Simulated scan of single mutants.
Amino acid sequence: MAEHNDSGRLAEELASKWLIEKGFELQEQNYRHGYAEIDLILTYKKLLVFVEVKFRSGTGFGYAEEFVDYTKRKLIIKAADQYIYENNWDFDIRFDIVGVYRDRTGAYNFKHFEDAFY
């Protein structure tokens, strides 16, 4: 498997654990519908949160939120609609981005963008 795929999976695992520590409950990871994939689906109180996780080994090429373009957002929203339908969700939803950054010492840091798009 390519190194960027390994980094992406690790970032998703780290982001999932980090969000769980903040009080979120994981419902699904790597949910797929057609060509779309949602990295993490969690609940927080009565809120369903769809999370796109982006790993950056630095910020020289930009920040995580800059890498979720219009096409990617459309795909995530389409998959989210299907998930909501399948699970008969009747409460509020939110779309977040979690940036996972590795600093020079190898430590991981997180930046959470709540309500990043819709």
Rank of each mutant, 00 (worst) to 15 (best):
I97Q: 02
Q29W: 04
F61R: 15
K111D: 09
Y83I: 13
D103G: 00
F113H: 08
T105K: 01
M1A: 09
L75S: 06
R102K: 15
A80E: 03
V53M: 02
E37L: 03
F61N: 14
S57E: 13
E12W: 03
E114F: 07
G34V: 06
V68M: 07
A116D: 08
G58S: 15
R104A: 03
E65D: 12
A11F: 04
Q82L: 06
I41D: 00
A64H: 05
R94A: 12
F50Y: 05
H112E: 03
A79C: 09
F24C: 09
L48T: 03
E21Y: 04
S16W: 00
S57G: 15
M1T: 12
F24K: 08
S57A: 14
D103M: 00
Y44P: 03
E86K: 10
R104Y: 01
S7T: 12
E86I: 05
Y63S: 12
K45F: 09
Q29N: 11
W89I: 09
T71S: 09
F50T: 00
R56M: 07
F67K: 14
G58C: 11
W18S: 03
G23D: 06
H112N: 08
E3S: 10
D90R: 15
Y70N: 15
E13I: 01
K46C: 05
E66H: 12
N30P: 11
H33A: 13
N87V: 03
F55I: 03
L14W: 04
G23H: 07
K74E: 14
Y44Q: 12
L47E: 09
G99S: 10
Y44T: 06
K74I: 10
L14E: 02
